[in-house]
């Protein structure tokens, strides 16, 4: 099956029902995308499919065939990405396991809405769990990322 990952075409020999997450991690070796729950409960595995944030742990390979997938590795190829800059400025990270997913979620959010209200940030990011409790900084980080994005 063919798909494009971070701009590169990939041909993978896997079961059509294999979740995208495990194709990325175990077949393609892209381990930046993390596993947290396996049932779209935590947002840790978030990637972009054709620009939209999806939970890769419950996205079957067959549904992304021929589509364009961006993972954290692809987004971080631009170290000046507003979300990464904001995350660094606000020192958001603790253990870090959930953060690639948070960054992907935040990037999709600010791409869609350049000036999100706090309520819009909360509803947009509420599917992303963080056991270390970096939520206060995530809220501030998305605000800041939007600001950077607007002035860029």
């Amino acid at each position: 099956m063919k798909l494009t990952v971070n701009g590169r075409e990939q041909d993978v020999d896997v079961a059509p029902e294999m979740p995208l997450l495990w194709v990325l991690r175990d077949t393609l070796g892209l381990t930046g995308t993390k596993f947290g729950c396996g049932m779209s409960q935590c947002g840790v595995c978030t990637v972009h499919v054709d620009g939209k944030a999806v939970r890769s742990c419950t996205t079957m390979m067959s549904s992304v065939e021929g589509k364009s997938v961006t993972t954290i590795e692809g987004l971080a190829a631009d170290p000046g990405h507003p979300v990464l800059r904001a995350w660094h400025e606000l020192d958001v990270v603790q253990c870090g396991w959930c953060q690639p997913g948070q960054v992907m979620g935040a990037a999709a959010l600010v791409a869609k809405n350049a000036s999100p209200t706090d309520a819009e940030i909360v509803s947009g990011m509420n599917g992303h769990l963080c056991r270390c409790g970096t939520y206060g900084r995530i809220l501030a980080g998305v605000r800041r990322a939007a600001e950077i994005g607007r002035t860029k």
Binding site: T31, G32, T33, K34, F35, T71, I72, E73, A76, P79, L84, W87, H88, D91, V92, V93, G96, W97, Q99, P100, V103
Partner: peptide, 16 residues
């Protein structure tokens, strides 16, 4: 945090 950028960018290697 020293390793913050590596973690946000998915470069940091965890056990899994």
């Amino acid at each position: 945090r020293l390793e913050g950028a590596d973690k946000s960018a998915g470069r940091a290697v965890f056990g899994l």
